[in-house]
Design a protein around this nucleic acid. Structure first.
Lengths: 290, 290
DNA sequence: CGGCTGTCATACCCTGGAGGTATCGGGCGA
DNA sequence: TCGCCCGATACCTCCAGGGTATGACAGCCG
């Protein structure tokens, strides 16, 4: 009848690892149970999801389709749960996500003057999870920096600002007025490469596959700490770079890199009047400050 | 852990009827089972969903929130099921929804020349379900006429065309070059009032509540049959009105009514390259023909 | 080539939850 | 006041989801 979200969640775990035993471990269930549930899911959907040839596990086309659809569905279920829970707790709440370096207080204050009884929360995000918080209901709207995966979201552009590279003060490029992205080909980037697409194309560490697989740091202060220690570089929007000023660090404009585009984003399947209202406020404030 | 979609479906049925007995009947289960499942759902979500005071049932704020979120979630589950089933059947398929009167063959032909192996289907929609087919996965893209509920969708405007009122040939207004919407205040509209927002504001049958509750007809030919029989009027885009020409029917422009805006729409949570490709084709064709 | 290991499937048991029927109890209308 | 409507409660049955033990098969290594 209906798909069983538990089975779908199990499937995602297996599909991501292509290994029943380790997926079962991650799900805290026994491996035979997982095998049986996946089989049951295949029967319910009347579709083979994996090809298992006694040694390796691989996805079928149907499995790939399911994997693509499963994650938004599970996130939607998560969001439903969160929002109902919040509605049950009584007070109207509205949660605004924001990236480090962005100023959101003026918009929130404007919203509060119109809705004095509203309980407005803020939620700090990182580049990696700035859209997840919208899909799983942790935030109602979120200030995001492009590029993002826009699936399931609606966005409104607010402002753009130039991006700079952040270097240790004693770096060979530290004195320059402006550099080009190619000058950084040999450096180690401390952030998600998706955040700087121009760098992807020229980065040596990506081409040679010799990228150190240390976990990507998501906290700005932590990134700056590593930059100062000479362990890598980072590309920030100008406002972020100036906000976190330190003596052992400098920032240099990069001539051939796209600006940082800041947008307001929200889940496109929702229609909460507060969202539209907040979007209008944010847009107006963005216009006023430029 | 995860929400149970079955329980959510049960909840929607009860929330729409505010009556456990009839909801149970519609779901083909016994009433006590339904009562118990709703109670279980309330416990799982830790939220009271209904206030039951021995005679009437009413939704709580949490219940209203759940109702708002439940439908897209269930439609998403439906869509997942459909798309996985299709992927399992093998051949790549792509389904285009369209409203009566819109011509889609040229766009489909263009898509087919680029993807000779693709299996392209068409699906005729009506004003009422033109967006449902996208949300529940019956179609990959759909030509729609505004206004629509844009939640969860992404749309691209294609073209606009004037709208006319369709009248029996012997109607008192039949000879006019142009009329105003107010002239139609006393008429019976044969279609979903949401399709003609300007009419909502002046319609006598809506103001007095004496609207005959005959089911809204969704088939164009059927509407024309009723118009010819003097049982009501209909507002169509010009192309539709000229397409279905009959001797016992005339159409008259309405001066103060917004044009019909035709868009291509698709589910905003998906990223299928074929969707983007088809959107580009449709946009180009729309530009070429104007 | 034989044994070991890793990996998924099978067999079997136990419990909880979803379905059913019968019945209760409180409002409301006649 | 009586009957009716409607949701809740009580109790039964059965299957699905969890567990453990073990089998089957591929690849690896000595």
């Amino acid at each position: 009848m209906d798909v069983d979200l538990r089975k779908v969640r199990y499937f995602v775990e297996v599909a991501e690892r292509l290994h029943f035993g380790r997926a079962a471990e991650a799900l805290h269930i026994a491996q035979p149970v997982l095998s049986r549930q996946i089989r049951a899911l295949e029967q319910e959907l009347k579709a083979q999801l994996f090809v298992r040839d006694k040694r390796t596990t691989e996805l079928t086309p149907a499995g790939r389709q399911l994997l693509a659809d499963a994650r938004p569905l599970l996130a939607g279920a998560d969001a439903l749960r969160r929002r109902v829970g919040r509605a049950a707790r009584g007070a109207d709440t509205f949660t605004v996500g924001f990236m480090p370096g962005l100023i959101v207080t003026s918009a929130i204050r404007a919203l509060l003057t119109r809705h004095p009884d509203l309980d407005v929360d803020t939620l700090r995000t990182s580049f990696a999870d700035q859209t997840d918080v919208l899909r799983d209901g942790r935030a109602d709207v979120s200030y995001v920096r492009l590029p993002i995966d826009q699936r399931g979201l609606r966005i409104r552009p607010l402002l753009t600002e130039p991006r700079v590279v952040v270097l240790p003060a004693d770096h060979r490029l530290a004195g320059k007025d402006s550099i080009e992205i190619a000058d950084l080909a040999a450096e180690h980037l401390l952030q998600d490469p998706d955040a700087v697409p121009e760098w992807r194309d020229i980065a040596e560490e990506l081409r040679t596959g010799r990228r150190r697989d240390e976990p990507v740091v998501t906290i700005v202060e932590e990134k700056l700490e590593r930059v100062a220690a000479g362990r890598g570089i980072a590309v920030f929007p100008l406002s972020t770079a100036t906000f976190y000023t330190r003596k052992d660090i400098v920032h240099v404009p990069v001539a051939d890199i796209g600006p940082s585009q800041v947008c307001l984003a929200w889940d496109s399947s929702r229609r909460n009047p507060l969202i539209a209202e907040f979007a209008a406020i944010a847009e107006q404030l963005a216009l006023a400050t430029t």
